[in-house]
């Protein structure tokens, strides 16, 4: 794991970011109810935000004082291209989920990421994605009736149509 006497690539930036975030949260916590009373809704948020500011401050201080770097390189060890690409895929998924709907987005996501990670094999990727998606759909949508965003595929109507076909008029 990490040698705690040395800092990794990007560590100062991350810890600095956490410190700034903590400060913002402390201000937001103060805005809830100020120093009104010990039982006010803002009491605990302020206390924990303060703890975040102090601890992240200490962590940052330690980073800055300790200027020795270990041999890590940001793009190789912390955020390699595979991670960046998958993060982008996931972000794309989140953006497309509502307008496009669950089924097409998931299929696209699964197929693209398997193709990317395996560096090819379109037929394999499509088959695996379809089977996996079908399983997820059956478990979540049909058994657990989780209503994922339908988007462009009118799955509720299709399900009802299938139901009518097999069960007669339900």
């Amino acid at each position: 794991m990490h040698d705690k006497r040395m800092r990794s690539a990007g560590e100062i930036a991350f810890n600095g970011g956490m410190f700034v975030l903590s400060l913002v949260l402390l201000v937001a916590a103060y805005a809830i109810s100020g120093f009104e009373s010990l039982s006010s809704p803002g009491a605990l948020p302020m206390a924990v935000a303060l703890a975040m500011v102090v601890s992240s401050g200490l962590i940052l201080l330690d980073n800055v004082r300790n200027s020795r770097r270990d041999g890590t390189r940001f793009i190789r060890d912390i955020l390699p291209p595979a991670v960046i690409v998958m993060m982008l895929f996931v972000a794309g998924y989140a953006v497309l989920l509502v307008p496009l709907g669950f089924l097409p987005t998931s299929l696209l996501f699964l197929a693209l990421s398997i193709i990317y990670l395996r560096r090819g094999g379109i037929a394999y990727a499509l088959t695996v994605s379809l089977v996996a998606l079908l399983l997820v759909y059956v478990v979540f949508r049909l058994v657990f009736t989780v209503l994922m965003p339908a988007g462009i595929v009118p799955e509720a109507e299709i399900l009802a149509a299938i139901g009518r076909m097999f069960g007669g008029a339900e």
Partner: peptide, 11 residues
């Protein structure tokens, strides 16, 4: 056939 018609109709 029934399914495709149902599909087409519902869409």
């Amino acid at each position: 056939v029934k399914f495709t018609t149902a599909f087409a109709l519902t869409t």
